[in-house]
Design a protein around this nucleic acid. Structure first.
Lengths: 102, 102
DNA sequence: TAGTTAATTAATTAATTATTTAACTATTTA
DNA sequence: TAAATAGTTAAATAATTAATTAATTAACTA
């Protein structure tokens, strides 16, 4: 497991997470949002996957990447700790709010 | 302004933030918690300060560093967005919880 | 005011990172 | 089964980063 903090330190990788927040995507689709090459995207995806921030699914010759929201929550907890909150209360908040919003 | 994401990608700097969460400290005090030299601590502090994660105060020949919780909240918001929450609702949650806890 | 203390800045070095092009692997399709 | 498609891996390179020791700055103190 690679460091998720190193993973999100790169702005392209943060942008990939925001893209995957909207919908699951293949490497080719993701690469359309960037200037750089498909191999570069592939490496960014590997780093995100190895740090557990995204999940990979093979479908035929495609790979579909999706956001791992649980990991995002876990990282969020680092900051929540600075306000004296923990993962549990934070998660309850997020899940309750979701019900209200819909 | 340097990237706060680059700043927190280093584990020593994350540890410094956790130390400052407990209490304000001088570089010398902080360096007692690490193996590496005072100049190395000074550089880490500069990076954290330049990314707005900590605040500096000069008192005589000492410098006192403190955590900037607002910046932590701002970064937390990146992750909150993945759960469809925004800074405002998150901050309200954190502040209300604080009242309850005390 | 000379010496001490607290901290930063400078110069250097070794390690890591992001990117490229080229080569390869796996899967589908004609 | 040959060709096409989707993607990853390899090798090379340029840029960035974390650390060190040495030098410097600023403020206090005897």
């Amino acid at each position: 497991m690679e460091s998720p903090w190193k993973a999100i330190s790169d702005s392209s990788r943060r942008k990939i997470l925001l893209l995957l927040k909207e919908r699951d995507m293949t490497p080719t689709e993701i690469s359309k949002h960037f200037q750089f090459s498909l191999p570069a995207v592939s490496i960014h995806l590997r780093i995100l996957k190895n740090s557990d921030l995204i999940l990979e699914q093979k479908v035929g010759k495609n790979r579909i990447y999706s956001l791992n929201k649980e990991k995002a929550l876990e990282m969020m907890n680092f900051f929540a700790g600075m306000w004296d909150y923990n993962l549990k209360s934070l998660k309850e908040f997020l899940e309750n709010q979701k019900v209200v919003k819909r």
